[in-house]
Amino acid sequence: MEAPAKPSVAPNHSTLTKRLAGQSVAFACYGGGGDCDCPIDVTGDNGGVLINVYPGYQCAYAGGACTWDDKTGALQNTMQTNCPTVAPCSASSGCECPADLNGDTGVLINQFTGYQCAYVHGACTWDYSGNLQNTDQTNCPTDVPCAQSAGDG
């Protein structure tokens, strides 16, 4: 009796192929000067890399997500063509999604002011007051306010 044929794909080898999508994913990124320093995580890793500093909010639309500064309303992802260039949050009702330039209704998917650092054991996300947002990530200190190096401006 013959042994069954072995699969043609090696174990742990993916048969998935990369496809190019027609739409990019929006993420907040602050370019206003002065970044937050990444603290040493609880495992002693001092090689944290700042991956995001955000003052803003995001709305999802059929034509793509839009990210605005929550204070000034300035559009952060300016290459996204369906987004109004200014959409500030209301002092009384908070951040709400405006109709986009295609007339589509948006859904608020993120509102956050804080920073993220990547570490070997996982990324940590804090608000500017230093409160850990992703509390299930066990390598993250729980209270680390945004601190800037003397050279940041």
Rank of each mutant, 00 (worst) to 15 (best):
residue 137 Q to N: 10
residue 85 T to V: 14
residue 123 A to G: 13
residue 59 C to T: 02
residue 74 A to W: 01
residue 40 I to A: 13
residue 44 G to D: 10
residue 63 G to Q: 15
residue 85 T to Q: 14
residue 61 Y to G: 01
residue 30 Y to R: 14
residue 90 S to E: 08
residue 94 G to L: 08
residue 60 A to Y: 02
residue 59 C to W: 00
residue 22 G to A: 13
residue 99 A to G: 07
residue 41 D to I: 03
residue 70 D to Q: 09
residue 5 A to M: 04
residue 143 D to S: 14
residue 5 A to Q: 09
residue 132 L to N: 00
residue 120 V to F: 06
residue 66 C to A: 12
residue 132 L to V: 00
residue 143 D to P: 00
residue 134 N to T: 06
residue 41 D to Q: 04
residue 73 G to Y: 02
residue 89 C to W: 03
residue 21 A to H: 14
residue 90 S to N: 15
residue 129 S to M: 04
residue 62 A to E: 12
residue 24 S to A: 15
residue 49 V to N: 08
residue 36 C to M: 10
residue 25 V to L: 10
residue 78 T to S: 15
residue 57 Y to Q: 02
residue 61 Y to R: 01
residue 87 A to M: 05
residue 89 C to V: 05
residue 88 P to Y: 07
residue 42 V to P: 04
residue 124 C to S: 05
residue 134 N to H: 01
residue 99 A to V: 11
residue 131 N to W: 05
residue 81 T to S: 14
residue 102 N to S: 11
residue 10 A to L: 10
residue 27 F to I: 08
residue 76 Q to C: 04
residue 75 L to G: 04
residue 123 A to R: 06
residue 27 F to V: 12
residue 72 T to D: 09
residue 142 T to W: 02
residue 89 C to A: 11
residue 14 S to A: 12
residue 116 Q to Y: 01
residue 27 F to A: 09
residue 142 T to S: 13
residue 98 P to C: 10
residue 120 V to I: 11
residue 20 L to G: 11
residue 60 A to G: 05
residue 130 G to D: 02
residue 55 P to M: 04
residue 83 C to I: 12
residue 78 T to K: 14
residue 10 A to I: 03
residue 100 D to A: 06
residue 107 V to P: 00
residue 96 E to C: 04
residue 122 G to K: 05
residue 129 S to T: 09
residue 105 T to L: 13
residue 92 S to C: 11
residue 64 G to C: 04
residue 98 P to K: 08
residue 26 A to D: 07
residue 81 T to R: 12
residue 115 Y to G: 00
residue 8 S to R: 08
residue 65 A to C: 01
residue 24 S to K: 14
residue 21 A to D: 15
residue 110 N to R: 12
residue 45 D to W: 02
residue 91 A to R: 13
residue 84 P to S: 07
residue 67 T to G: 02
residue 51 I to F: 05
residue 61 Y to D: 02
residue 126 W to Y: 03
residue 7 P to N: 09
residue 129 S to P: 00
residue 120 V to W: 01
residue 32 G to R: 05
residue 133 Q to I: 07
residue 121 H to T: 13
residue 24 S to W: 12
residue 24 S to C: 15
residue 44 G to Q: 11
residue 141 P to M: 03
residue 89 C to T: 06
residue 101 L to C: 12
residue 99 A to P: 08
residue 57 Y to D: 02
residue 133 Q to M: 06
residue 70 D to W: 05
residue 76 Q to W: 01
residue 99 A to F: 12
residue 97 C to F: 02
residue 11 P to S: 09
residue 8 S to A: 07
residue 47 G to V: 06
residue 142 T to G: 10
residue 43 T to C: 09
residue 40 I to C: 06
residue 101 L to E: 14
residue 124 C to Y: 01
residue 107 V to Y: 02
residue 132 L to F: 00
residue 87 A to F: 03
residue 30 Y to C: 14
residue 6 K to V: 10
residue 68 W to I: 00
residue 54 Y to T: 15
residue 24 S to D: 14
residue 73 G to S: 05
residue 16 L to Q: 10
residue 16 L to N: 08
residue 53 V to P: 00
residue 73 G to K: 01
residue 127 D to F: 06
residue 39 P to N: 00
